[in-house]
Amino acid sequence: MKMKRHVTCLMKKLTEKSHFSTLQITRFLSTQEAIERRSYLFTLEKKRQIENVGRIEKIEVQYKGIPKDCTLVMNKNISTPYDCARHLSEWHMESSVLALLDGNLHWDMHRPLTESCTLEFQNYKAAEPQQVNKAFWRTCSLMLGACATVAFKDTVPVHLHSFPLPDIRSGSFIYDVDLPTLSDWQPTHQEVLTLAAEYVKLCRKAVPLERLEVGEELALEMFVDNEHKSKQIPNIAKTNGKVILYRAGNHVDISRGPLISNTAQIGRLAVTAVHKLTGPTEDGVSQLYRFQGVALPKGVVLDHFAFSILMDRAKKLNPARSPFLKKEDPEINEQIENVAAQA
């Protein structure tokens, strides 16, 4: 309650100063409506794609791992590694983060299998967990975006911008968010805690991260309310005309993937800081807020002192490339845009 009152008080102060004219022009859908619309389109497209599979063909999946190697006969383009895990045990369903196909290809747990292959499951304790860690960090970034859209009141429009490639050694996962009505926001400690609480709430819902490849047009239609994403989409779709979307709950976002299987696999976490990034004004975006956090997978037990070290480090501004950098040098900047949008 206290937190809520605190936030509302701050919101009131800010809305008094804010410019209502710009607000009404830039927004023709409320944030909540836009989220639901996007999720609905995602559902429709997913249904369409499954119906498009047509005649069901069988593939042989050779599972390698505990309790013993076995062969599963699954449906082509319908069955996912998660379905294979459901044939094995609850432990496999809960702990598997990524699937490893043919020993070299990392595959989302909820992505349909396209051909016969060998299958291994990887969790956070795998012998070589680099890809798993990256997927985890990427998912944390994506969920931070979801958290940012949910946490603010309806009067504050939230436009998600992007998040860069996962860099675990930087100490924090980040999401750059555009908050047009908040020109000079410095979050208090309480507000940061509120954000973290929202994040935990989202993760506790334990929703799967669904993957979908859609065409450029549909992607543009889904992100019509978000100017930044609609600018990034043509760039991403340049190579094969496809955009990869992920959905957690009803939050849909662009990411190259792969991501982890379920939000319940995110354990201890902290949203640590929100920093302001400023840049040139020509493009309409003069500033972004960089949300930062740090998290550990579920089941990883870390001493509170060690975790406080990680939290303190994550409070510093993450040196990952700012989206504003591109205006200065067009050549490098195209690559950066690609990197930022496709992460």
Partner: peptide, 19 residues
């Protein structure tokens, strides 16, 4: 107790130490 330098908590702590 197995331990792996590449586990995410170890990577994070290593980076913090280096920093």
């Amino acid at each position: 107790q197995p331990n792996n330098r590449l586990w995410i908590q170890n990577v994070l702590l290593d980076a913090a130490k280096y920093d």
